[in-house]
Nucleic acid binder design. Sequence first.
DNA 1: TTGTAAGCGTTATCAC
DNA 2: GTGATAACGCTTACAA
Lengths: 344, 344
Amino acid sequence: MTKVTIKDVARESGVSTYTVSRALRGLDHVSEATRAHVIATAHKLNYTISRSASDLATGSTHRIAVLMREKISGWFAGELLDGLYDVLEAEGYNLLIYRAGDLQERSSVFSTLPSDHNADALIVTGFSPSQHEQEMLKRLGIPIVAVNSSDIDSADCSLAIDDIQGETMAIRYLASLGHRRFCYLGRLDPLPTWGRELRLEAYQQAMKELNLHDCGIFQADPNLQGSVATAIASMLASPVVPTAICAWADSHALAALSELRRNGLRLPDNISLIGFDGSTVARNLGLTTMSQPARDMGRKAARAALDLLNGEPPTERKLVIPAQLTPGTTTGPAPTSKSISYAN
Amino acid sequence: MTKVTIKDVARESGVSTYTVSRALRGLDHVSEATRAHVIATAHKLNYTISRSASDLATGSTHRIAVLMREKISGWFAGELLDGLYDVLEAEGYNLLIYRAGDLQERSSVFSTLPSDHNADALIVTGFSPSQHEQEMLKRLGIPIVAVNSSDIDSADCSLAIDDIQGETMAIRYLASLGHRRFCYLGRLDPLPTWGRELRLEAYQQAMKELNLHDCGIFQADPNLQGSVATAIASMLASPVVPTAICAWADSHALAALSELRRNGLRLPDNISLIGFDGSTVARNLGLTTMSQPARDMGRKAARAALDLLNGEPPTERKLVIPAQLTPGTTTGPAPTSKSISYAN
DNA sequence: TTGTAAGCGTTATCAC
DNA sequence: GTGATAACGCTTACAA
C-alpha cells in the first residue's frame, strides 16, 4: 500500500496538481465539472492529504498547544480542554498537550518546547512561568494565551478567574451567616514557584478587613493518603475551633467533607464548608462553592488564540472573570457556642 | 524576525546543512569540535527546527492521537491522558486530542480523521466504532490501540478493564454481606451505538446466577440537573426497594449518594452503594468501588502504540485487566427487614 | 568527517 | 479555468 500523493490524483484525473489542490480545498477558479471529477478520483484512490507537506508549504501547523501544570486530569483541566476543543475543532485546529508535571518535567518541557516548533499558538494554564521561562516562551515567536496564570507578562492575552473577588465573596457570605471563626484549607505545593496563592491572600485580607478570626492555614493534598485527615485533625485540635472552612478547591473540600463527617461533625449544623471550582461532583454532592466557568474559559482562550493568529488584537488583553457563588447544603448559619461541642 | 533555517546555521557556522542536521540531532560522524560550534551558532541565531519539514522528510509525525468518547473531561479520560503522556513524552512523541462528543461530532471526526493525516498511531477509548467507522480507521493505515472499547476488531491491540469480572465481584461482595435486593444505576445514552453495556449485562447475569432480586434498572446522567434525583426517587418508589445499588461509575454513585442522604437514608445502615472507577474523589469520600488503574492503562496503551510503530508485535494483542474491589464506608451488612422503613 | 544534491508532498506564482 | 514550476525546510543517499 504505497503512499498515494497529489500527483497520482493529478495524473489519474488528467489535470495538474494545482487543480487537484484547489478542487479538493473547495477554492475558486475550478470548474464544477473538473472539481467533481477530481474529488471522485481522489476518493477512488483513497487519497489523503499529507498534513506535513501542507504545513510546510503554508507555514502553519494548524495545531494549538496547551501547557498544563501538574496533571492533565482534574476537573478544571478537563473542562478547559473541552472548551478549547469546542472552538478549535470547528476552526480546523488540532489540540496538542504538554504537561509541566513536576519541577523536572517542567524544566524539560520548557527546554524542548522551542526546539519542537510544533504549534501555531500556546495556551499556558495554572501556573506562572519564571522570568527565565518567560524568555523561552517569547522566543517561541508564537502567540501566547495565559489562563489562570497570575503575573505572566509574556502572554499576549490573559484570562483568569477572579480569585480575590471569589474568595472574598465566599467569606462575606459565611460572615453574613454569622460565622466569625474561619480557617483555610490550602494546597500543599512542593515549591512556591508555581505562582501566587491569590485565594489565600484574599482570605487573609478578608480576615483583617472584616475583623474575623483566622484559626489557621492548613495544607493538604487530596491525592496523598491521609493528608487531608491530618489537616482536619490539626484543625479540630486548634485552640480556637473554626465554624467555617474555606477550601482552596472542590477536591480539597470534598475530601474534608468526608473527613469532618468521619469525626462526627454534621454539616452545616456543626460547621460550614465552602469550596472553589463548581465541579460537577461538587454540584451533585451539594457542596457550597465558588464556581468558575471552566469550559467557557476554554472557549474564550481558544478564540483569543485564534484572534491573535489572525493578527487581530484580542477583544481584551486581560480578562478577569468573576467567580459565582453556588450555594449548597454544606453552609448554614454559624452554630451558637453551645451547639458545637468542641468550641466553648 | 524572519525565519531562521538550517541553511542560515550552516552558512553562519561554515559547514553544510548535513553537518548541522547531524550535529543538532546528536548523531555520529560529526567531530565534537564542529558539533559544539554548530550548537553554539544555532543557539545564537535562536534556531528552532521546523517540525513540518522534518516530518515531511522523515515521514513520521512523532504524534499520537487519542480519540475520546463524549468528553475530554472526566476522571477516566484525564487519568488515561496522564498515563499516555507519561510514556509518550519520554519517547519524544506528542499527544494530539480528538473527541467524538455527540453523534454529530462523531461522524464529523471520523470523516476528517483520514483527510487529516496527522499522527503515527491512534488510540480509541470508551466506545466501539461501528462497522463503517472501523473501515475508516483501517483506511488510516496507522496502528490502532483500543482502550475500554468492546468489540473492536479493527484495533491492532486492545486493552480493557474487565467489566464482567468487576461487576460480578461487586455483586458477590454485596451478596456475601447479606444483600438480596439490588438495583442498577446506569448511564443515560442518546443512542445505544456507543457500545455494549458489559457492566449492566454482568449485573443481570449475576442476578440470575446468584438468585438475587433485581429491583430495576434506572438510568441517569449526573450532568443533567435533576436526572439522578429522578432516578433515585423512582428507585425508592419501586414495589420492592433494593438494599444495594450498583452504579455504572463513581460519578453516578456519588450523585446517588447525596440524593439518598437527602431522602433521609443513611449509608450503609439503610442501604449500600457501590461505584466503579476508583476515582480520587470516590476514595476521598469513602465510596466503595471497583477500581480500574486508569493511569497505568494509559501507560500500557502508549507502550503498545509505540511497539506497533516499531514493528514489534504488542506484548499482548488483547489485554483484559481485572478491576479491584476498594471497600469504603458506603457498603455494609444488609439491613434486616425492620431496619429499613421502606421495605417490608 | 564532511559536502552535494535529490527527494518528501504540498501550496503559490507565474504564465497561458 | 488550467498548467508548469519554484518554493517550503529538512533528511539522506551518494560522493568526496
